Structures are given as structure tokens and as C-alpha cells.
Simulated assay, not measured.
Amino acid sequence: MNLQNALLPPHTEMVRAMLERDTAYEGVFFTAVKTTGIFCRPTCTARKPKPENVEFFAHVDDALSAGYRPCLRCKPLDAAAIAPDWVQALLKSVEADPEVRWTDAQLEARGIEPLKLRRWFKQHFSMTFHAYIRARRLGMALGGIKQGESIDNAAFDSGYESLSGFRDAFQKSFHTTPGRTATREPLLFTRLTTPLGPMIAMAESRGLVLLEFLDRPALTKEVEELQSRYGYAVAPGHNAHLRQIETELGLYFEGKLTDFNVPLQMPGTPFAIEVWAELARVPYGQTRTYGEIAAKLGKPGASRAVGLANGHNRIAIVVPCHRIIGADGSLTGYGGGQPRKAFLLRLEKAAVQTSKPTTRHCPAGCP
């Protein structure tokens, strides 16, 4: 069985999505035009070819291997939102020395156009590059204060020349004063690349707290709830859990990982935590209905409540809410979009058919 072909939606569905430029299918498949030798995103604004002249691929690598060239208009090589080399090199420099206060002159000296960098960060992080590095430094200051460092030292180590400027920036970023940070847990976030588009991962010292597609409509509300209800202070950065989930996600999308081991930290209501724990027990490559989950919890009449808790799951893929379907077998809702849900189910089904999966365990730290 060809694993890549198994990842594709039905042919008629792809033709429709291509002709209608359906944005829900970004990253789900790519269109290649036999008469021009060019492959595109399904949403490309170029004149649509005749369906009989098109073939479809699950990944850009497959299209390239088949001899197709990437479209210069829709740039399918950027479909997974992979950071370009110049951004990756800059981010490595930031991580190597987060205290550096980058100026436009320094950026230009590295051959980076400041306006282009600003646009890229606004698109992919919802903040400018300078806002990103300020937030990165403040996150380090927060961690230092929680470990006993004085506020004065944290301020000056973060590059602030006055305590008042540091306090104002800290209050704006974390919605609290530096002196009250003993109750605020740092929640570090980073952006991850996947074949289905960029995701954001957030983790604290105990484990992964959030993993969502960046275009999920409820993402802003989820982050605000983590800040206001659960007391997290959100800042860009890295820790062991974020590095682990990046590695495990890569293996998952290659069909080589069926069991996530990254520790999880999932604050929520008692009922939601029960539902999420049951979701984590649904085996790789299988599906369950809302009614089946409710019955497992001893609450057979709670299908609707299970559906709501399922929709409030903040850790996509790892806590596999995509494996929950309607009683009639329909895919029903999914925060990342139904085409992505269908892709994930096809990926797992194909991997199961090509190799025997490992036993599914609840990830370490799962409620």
C-alpha cells in the first residue's frame, strides 16, 4: 500500500477543493499540472487547469520527486510555514544570546531587511521581531525572579536601564507586577512546523499545556483563559518539553510514532479532565463516538457534555480528539478543521496497515 496516496482525500473532493480554492485544504494536498510541470497549493489564484490534467500529492517532496516545479505565485514550498533559512539563523542567534538588543543596523549588516522581518514575525507569531525578543527577555526575567533573583538584577539583566521601564513592560506582558510573580507559572511557547501548517506549543516546568494549529479560531480565548484563570505568564522560549514534542510530532507525521511520551499538564474542570484522560486512551488508528466515551465514564446520557469537553481540549493530536466521531460515523467538528481531522485519521490508518503499531499508553503526566 502506498502510504502517501493513502493520506489523500477522495479524488472528487480534491477536485472540488481545488476549483473552489477551499482554504480548509491548505497543507492537506498539493495539485500538480501535467501540461505545465508546475505544482501548487489548492488555493493558488492562478487560472485553474482542467481536472483531467491534474494529479495530486500529499507532500511537496512527492511532487518534487515526480519532476514538478513549485509555483512562483502560491509558493507551495512555504505551505508548511517553514521558517526560511535567514529567519532560522536569526532565531538561533537569539537563543544563543537572548539578551542582545537587536537594532535595524545589526539586522541589515546580516543581510536582513527589517521590514521583511517584521512582516514575517507578525504573520507567524502575531508580534514583531523586536516585541518577540523583548518578551523573550521578560520571560527569562520571570524565571529568574521565581528562582530568587532580585527584581533589580532581573531588570538590568534583561537590558532595561530603569526599574520603572522594566516594571511597566513586565506588567503589560504578564498582567501582574514583578513582586507578585511567586504565584505565576512561566508558560513558554514556540512555533512548530507540521505538514498541515504551523502549530503553537506551550509548556511549563511540569509538561505540555497547549498544542494547537495557529489558525484555530479558539486559540486566543484558550491563551487568555490560561493567563486569567490558571495564572500562567506566557512568554516565548524553549524547554525540554517543547523540544520533545517537536521531535515526537515529526516522527508522528512520518508515520513512525504511535505513542507520545511528552509529559502533559492539563488544567480544567474535573469532568473535562476525565474526558481528556479517556481521549488519551483511544488507540492509535481507531475511533470512538461521543456516546462511547460517555459510557466509558459511566455517564451514558452525557454525549453532548463529552462533545463540549472534547472541543475544549487544548492539546491537539497528542490527546487525540480527532479520533472522536459522530454516532453515524461522520467526522463532526474539529478545532483544526475537518480536512485536517480526516488527514490525521488517514495517516494513522495507513500507518497501522503498513506496520504494527506499539501499544497506546496515556502520556506521562496525563490526567
Results as ranks from 00 to 15, higher is better:
residue 183 T to P: 04
residue 307 G to F: 00
residue 180 R to V: 01
residue 134 R to S: 07
residue 251 L to F: 09
residue 63 A to H: 03
residue 152 D to F: 14
residue 303 S to E: 15
residue 170 F to T: 01
residue 103 T to A: 02
residue 80 A to R: 10
residue 261 N to E: 15
residue 66 A to T: 09
residue 215 D to H: 11
residue 287 T to C: 04
residue 333 G to M: 09
residue 78 D to E: 15
residue 359 T to G: 07
residue 359 T to R: 15
residue 109 A to K: 14
residue 355 S to G: 12
residue 161 E to V: 14
residue 193 T to M: 07
residue 231 G to T: 00
residue 316 A to P: 11
residue 229 R to V: 14
residue 50 K to D: 15
residue 334 Y to K: 03
residue 80 A to P: 02
residue 6 A to K: 03
residue 290 Y to T: 05
residue 109 A to H: 12
residue 88 Q to E: 11
residue 223 V to Y: 15
residue 42 P to G: 04
residue 362 C to T: 08
residue 102 W to S: 09
residue 185 E to R: 10
residue 190 T to H: 06
residue 181 T to H: 06
residue 152 D to R: 15
residue 51 P to H: 12
residue 361 H to Q: 13
residue 269 T to W: 12
residue 284 Y to V: 04
residue 280 A to N: 01
residue 329 G to A: 08
residue 245 I to V: 14
residue 175 H to N: 12
residue 85 D to G: 06
residue 166 F to P: 00
residue 33 V to N: 05
residue 198 P to M: 09
residue 26 E to Q: 13
residue 52 E to V: 14
residue 131 A to W: 03
residue 338 Q to R: 09
residue 62 D to G: 11
residue 107 L to K: 04
residue 1 M to K: 08
residue 174 F to W: 06
residue 82 I to A: 15
residue 218 A to S: 15
residue 158 S to L: 00
residue 219 L to N: 07
residue 148 G to S: 07
residue 164 S to C: 12
residue 292 E to P: 06
residue 227 Q to W: 04
residue 196 L to I: 04
residue 342 A to Q: 03
residue 317 I to N: 01
residue 294 A to M: 11
residue 277 A to G: 15
residue 341 K to M: 04
residue 60 V to K: 02
residue 34 K to N: 13
residue 317 I to F: 03
residue 3 L to Y: 13
residue 102 W to R: 06
residue 213 F to E: 08
residue 61 D to T: 14
residue 120 W to C: 11
residue 275 V to G: 01
residue 50 K to T: 12
residue 132 Y to Q: 09
residue 71 C to P: 01
residue 81 A to C: 09
residue 241 H to S: 12
residue 83 A to G: 01
residue 309 A to K: 04
residue 205 S to M: 05
residue 197 G to P: 00
residue 339 P to K: 06
residue 66 A to Q: 06
